[in-house]
Design a protein around this nucleic acid. Structure first.
Lengths: 213, 213
DNA sequence: ATGCATTTTTATAGACGTATAGAATCTATA
DNA sequence: TATAGATTCTATACGTCTATAAAAATGCAT
C-alpha cells in the first residue's frame, strides 16, 4: 500500500522544487541584467528577500546556478527543432517554422535565453561542452533543412552552408539583446515573420516575372 | 622658432602614448577573452609582465580602461559608413560596401571589436550613452541605404525597416563571436561576401526569368 | 657623472565576494 | 502542542579585488 516514498517526502520534494525554481528564476534575472561575473550572490538573494548564505541551501555554488539557468535556457530548443525537421512540409516551410520556434522562447523564457546566449561561455569546461553539444544539434537542424532546400531546388546553391547557418543563428540570437523586454508575445511572432522573410527572400526586389499567361 | 611644447615634452608624449597603447591592447585582449567583470587588473598586468599597481600610471580605473577599449572598438565605423552612404553607387552596391566595411575590423581590431560588442553594456552611464550614439549613427546608415533602395525600386517594400536593420547588424556583429581567431583577413572578406549575398538575395532560389529575348 | 623627470615597484588599506558551520525558526503532522 | 525535519538566519573564515602612497629604479639631457 505504501508508495515508494512517504507522503511527507513527496510533499517536501514538490515544495523544495517550487522554491528551487524561484531561486533559479531570480538568478536568471540578475545574471541576464548584469552578467554572470557582474552578479554577486548577494544581489540574487536581494531579489528574493533572502539572506545571501541561504542560497547555498539550494545550490552548491554560483557556477552551479549558472549551469541550471543555462540548462533551462537551451531546454526544448533541440527537441522542437528536430521535430520540425522530421515533420511534414517543404524545406522553405520548415525553415520558417524553425525560425519561429527558435525565437518563441524570447518571450516565454527571456532571462534564461539571454543568459544562455551571453553567459554560457563562463561555464566550467564540462558543462560548457555538454551544452555546446546541444547548440551544435540545433545548428545541424538548420543545415539539414537548407541542404534539403538546395536538393529539391527551392533554395539557391553556392552558399557556404556552415557560414550561412552561423549567420542566421547569430541574427536570431541577437534578438534577445535588442528586443524591448516589455513587449508582448505577439512582437516575437512579428519579428520571426520579418526575419524569415529576410532570410528567405532577401532585401532585393525580385525581378518581376514576365506575364504568367 | 619654438614649437608649442618643448621637444622633451613631445618625446615624452609620444613614448607615453606608445606605452599606453600597449597597455590598452593588453586590456582589450583579456577583456575579450574573459569579459570585463571576469578580468582582474592583475590579469592585464600579467600579459604585460608588469605589476598590477603599475597599470594605474596609465589609467585611473578599470572602468576607464574599458572605456578606452570600447572607444577604439567603435572608432572609424561611423566615419566609414557615412562616407559610403555619401559616396557613389547604387543602394545595393552601397549595402554590400557597408557590410564589408562593417566586418573588416573583425580582422584588424578583433579584441577591441569583441569588447565593444560584448562588454559595452558595462560602461558607466555617461560613456555608454556617448558610445550608444555612435551605434545609432551606424544603424541610421543602414536604414538610409535600404530606404534609398526601396525608393529607387531595387529593394522590396513592406519590411519593418528598423527591425531589418537590427537583424542585419545582429547578424554581422555575431561574426566576432564565432569566427576562428586564427584565420586571415581573407576569411573576413569571404564572410562579408556571403553575408551580403544572404541579405540581398536570401536563400530562396529566384524564379528563373522567362527567356530574355 | 649628475640631477631631474619618468616609470615601475613594494606595501597595504579597505571593500567585497564566495562559501561553511552551527544556531534559530518555521511547518506539518501525530 | 510536542516533535522531527525542513528552511532560513547569524557569524565569520578566507580569499580576491581595486586603488593609493611612497620608495626605488630607470632613462635622459646636459
Amino acid at each position: 500500500m505504501n508508495s515508494l516514498w512517504p507522503r511527507s517526502r513527496l510533499l517536501r520534494n514538490s515544495r523544495l522544487l517550487r522554491r528551487a525554481d524561484a531561486i533559479v528564476d531570480a538568478a536568471a534575472n540578475v545574471f541576464a541584467e548584469r552578467g554572470y561575473h557582474g552578479t554577486s550572490t548577494q544581489a540574487i538573494a536581494d531579489v528574493l528577500g533572502l539572506r545571501q548564505a541561504s542560497l547555498y541551501y539550494y545550490f552548491p555554488s554560483k557556477e552551479a546556478a549558472l549551469e541550471l539557468v543555462c540548462e533551462r535556457g537551451v531546454d526544448g530548443f533541440v527537441e522542437t527543432a528536430e521535430a520540425i525537421l522530421a515533420g511534414a512540409g517543404t524545406p522553405l516551410e520548415k525553415l520558417t517554422a524553425l525560425i519561429a520556434a527558435h525565437l518563441a522562447p524570447n518571450a516565454s523564457k527571456r532571462d534564461y535565453v539571454k543568459v544562455f546566449i551571453n553567459e554560457r561561455r563562463y561555464l566550467p569546461d564540462a558543462s560548457r561542452r555538454r551544452i555546446g553539444r546541444k547548440s551544435r544539434r540545433i545548428e545541424r537542424c538548420f543545415e539539414e533543412v537548407i541542404r534539403a532546400g538546395i536538393a529539391d531546388g527551392s533554395m539557391r546553391e553556392g552558399a557556404d552552408l556552415r557560414l550561412t547557418v552561423l549567420a542566421v543563428l547569430g541574427m536570431m540570437n541577437s534578438v534577445i539583446n535588442w528586443r524591448a523586454a516589455d513587449q508582448d508575445d505577439a512582437s516575437v511572432a512579428r519579428i520571426a515573420a520579418e526575419l524569415s522573410q529576410l532570410v528567405v527572400a532577401g532585401l532585393a526586389k525580385p525581378v518581376p516575372a514576365r506575364k504568367r499567361t
